[in-house]
Design a protein around this nucleic acid. Structure first.
Lengths: 221, 221
DNA sequence: GTCTATAGATAGATAGAC
DNA sequence: GTCTATCTATCTATAGAC
């Protein structure tokens, strides 16, 4: 009934499950990020794919599980970027700065991811909590930070009383806020935090801030 | 038809417009913060007040304008707190720390406000943009930061290349992230950022971070 | 100003043919 | 696996009596 070389026909209906799933995920990511979980419309997602609403239910089982799949993929992307990071050849100060810049760059390049995380927090992370995939997804970054902190402390360079999770929170907060809150911040204070002309300034500020905190002279106690 | 001393009857239907408006705003704040703009239900808000859905439309003109009114009041609260701040008797370092702690405390005490801001950012601050009240609402904090920064620079204590808006963003990002992203952060990294046992630790960390950044020794350029 | 009832639109989800 | 058609529930908003 179907020709043997069907997969080669690009553009035509290919009955490729993986491809259809991926296309739905792409469109759903944009739609959920744009309108929020409740604001997103399954009809709208279907209309923007080459498939139908029925297929979304067929592949994902519903709006809720579609959103969870979207989250899983979005977190997977940042975890991959983290795994590609190599700072073992750098001294602790340079390594921390490099790591902060990676987070800075990734957040800036993936505003949809930031929006999805904000939306998931409004829902108190219930989709993450119910996802085996996300629960098992560790954080390569945390291990890297741990190693850098240990090295920096051993050499006496780092004096701060903060562990890897604290430092990750500090770096993420600056990068996340700049992207996530740029609309209210811009509307209220008249400054565009993601203005390309100020990008280098904020990227440097982040690194300076983290390094200054880690290396500041502190009273003995 | 109504007795003269009607306002004294507490509990009974009082026909007090200001009181009814305030009650609707209270309930709407909780409901919008809980479920997001699209997730919130006008029926649900009405059911939790002593008035009816018809009155919400009567007083506010619709869901969208109700949300805007909720935002206006929430921002009003933090602006009032900022105006009560007095740091003129402190040296620049202590003043900055005091200011950071005020933001830290306010964010922690008003999680609903944080959620509303997150929600408004998902909607790209369209309600702030269309609100005269919010557009005119300046920020007392910015003026205070400006004065402290000028003083700190004059005395040679502060070396950082950041203005008041940058500093406000830095402080807010840490405080905001800790509350807004506590669910995803907790689910993924197993740490509760608002655990009371760690409250003092993070409050100190914030001040240390900002002061270290502002006073760090820098290469001449 | 306050109530009940309902209009009008649209959402998520599914049936059933092919 | 894919389509069209549709069910059922529910949402925002309003009409109209009092």
């Amino acid at each position: 009934m179907t020709s043997v070389d069907e997969p080669a026909r690009s553009g035509a209906r290919t009955r490729d499950a993986a491809r259809t799933r991926a296309e739905i995920l792409d469109v759903a990511t944009r739609e959920f990020a744009r309108a929020g979980y409740d604001g997103a419309r399954v009809d709208e997602i279907a209309a923007r794919t080459r498939t139908t609403k029925r297929m979304i239910y067929y592949y994902f089982g519903g709006k809720e599980r579609l959103f969870t799949a979207v989250l899983e993929r979005a977190y997977g992307v940042i975890r991959e970027a983290e795994q590609r990071l190599d700072v073992d050849h750098l001294d602790p100060v340079a390594a921390i700065r490099r790591l902060a810049e990676l987070t800075f760059d990734h957040h800036e390049e993936h505003p949809d991811f930031i929006r999805l995380v904000s939306i998931e927090n409004i829902h108190e992370a219930e989709h993450i909590a119910s996802s085996e995939t996300l629960a098992r997804m560790g954080s390569p970054t945390l291990d890297v930070i741990r190693r850098i902190l240990a090295e920096g402390r051993r050499s006496g360079l780092f004096t701060a009383d903060a562990d890897a999770v604290d430092l990750h929170a500090m770096i993420s907060s600056f990068c996340f806020f700049r992207v996530a809150n740029r609309h209210t911040f811009g509307a209220l204070f008249g400054r565009d935090l993601v203005d390309p002309a100020r990008r280098a300034h904020y990227r440097t500020m982040l690194g300076d801030m983290v390094i200054a905190y880690l290396t500041a002279e502190r009273a003995q106690d």
